[in-house]
Design a binder for these strands. Structure first.
Lengths: 229, 229
DNA sequence: CCAAAAGTGTTTTGTGTACACCCATGT
DNA sequence: ACATGGGTGTACACAAAACACTTTTGG
């Protein structure tokens, strides 16, 4: 009877999450201030250890929920980090995930409980272990993914203006985009619904609100459409 | 004193490798026939368990060397697979890697020792566990990567003809390409050296051999060049 | 002389990029 | 009336795609 690979080494497996948000101006990441050793008081990604009865996705979901109070967050597995001494306490392999949340939805109590704070990705402090490397990896992946999949909307409220969407892409890609070209491109994709409502907070004229039409997008994909910005 | 995360679960961490080769006609993968339980006699990816003193890359290199006898194989980490029951023997997380080798270089003895065989990716047998999923993942990544990095050459001998290179891209992308457009594109990249030698095996006229000029490519990249096919 | 693969340019089409003015409104 | 951001279309440049004939040479 074969019921274990008993002579093989077992290791600790951690999951660390790069949580992205967008405040209408800058791309941000949510970091926590460690209140435990090692590196107590330093900034870090939110993480945790994989449990025996969880998948990596389960674990990432649990960790994300713990810090934000939100379920069903958009997330994607990034990469496995395995340098021998990456965690000075004990050999730990970490699988990094990145997640996209609507920054308005986070739970203040939890943010306080974990001494968490949103940082502009360009002004984030140095992080513990190899977490900076994880963040860089996440940004690269985010740039690629948002250019080829309509996931940017995860960072916005359900209703948003064209200007917000453009600012979002500018923040992610870290480059300025031409307003007319951007709008033409988005409109040619034909996956947004223009609402009758206007957002009046940003100008006297007001700007129309849009909504991402997921059903329409899914149908177009079935017919061979590929999102590309 | 803090020297272990003692109450956390530890898990077995496997590394499984999708090994690609190219025989001038088709994209192939190297599979082994398991001579151990579970699933003895079934086809599988080559794999192994991560050891305490190895990184994931180390582990993948070791596994690749074990089967092929080759060192310094081009490889890239793909994804972590973690379904609870993916391995019926014991909870095992597997990190998949894909690797590219020149199919001529493999070691016959080792191939025999592990009952390995090259399969056309389109005609591969059903594999154990979630290995089919890993292979699909690897093919998608390979398509993306070969379109954006000059790694296809890893699958060819050092000297190769334009026809071989085109066939390689056709096999990877699983679509036919126009001969003139392909050659024009490759030439415009200006990263190959045309040799004086001809390959006389494929036609009476013979076709010129080329070599990838890595130094030239690296210099061009420094100057902002980006490979794109 | 013929079969088989190698080699070679031009035209058309589509996509990306650059660019400037009027509109609506609250104060 | 004016300041502020919102909204709109066209021309040009470049890259991708379509496309067919000539060359070489061993048998």
């Amino acid at each position: 009877m074969l019921n274990s690979y008993s002579k093989e080494d077992k290791v600790l497996l951690a999951v660390d999450c790069i949580i992205f948000g967008f405040d209408n101006e800058e791309l941000k990441i949510l970091l926590i201030k460690r209140d435990f050793k090692p590196e107590k008081g330093k900034w870090s990604l939110m993480g945790g250890f994989l449990k025996q009865n969880e998948t990596l996705d389960d674990s990432a979901n649990r960790i994300l929920h713990t810090l934000t109070g939100i379920n069903n967050i958009y997330m994607e597995q990034l990469y496995g980090f395995s340098k021998i001494d990456r965690d000075p306490v004990e050999r730990t392999i970490s699988v990094a995930y990145y997640a996209l949340i609507n920054i308005e939805e986070h739970n203040e109590e939890l943010i306080e409980k974990y001494s968490a704070r949103w940082f502009n990705v360009k002004e984030a402090p140095k992080l513990i272990f190899d977490h900076d490397q994880m963040v860089n990896h996440a940004i690269r992946r985010l740039r690629y993914r948002t250019s080829n999949k309509p996931i940017g909307f995860e960072l916005l409220p359900e209703k948003f203006t064209m200007r917000q969407l453009q600012k979002l892409y500018e923040a992610i890609l870290d480059e300025e985009l031409d307003k007319r070209n951007f709008i033409n491109k988005i409109n040619s994709l034909d996956i947004l619904v223009k609402l009758k409502e206007k957002d009046m907070t940003s100008s006297r004229k007001g700007s129309y609100l849009y909504r991402f039409d997921k059903d329409k997008y899914d149908k177009k994909v079935e017919d061979g459409f590929t999102f590309k910005i």
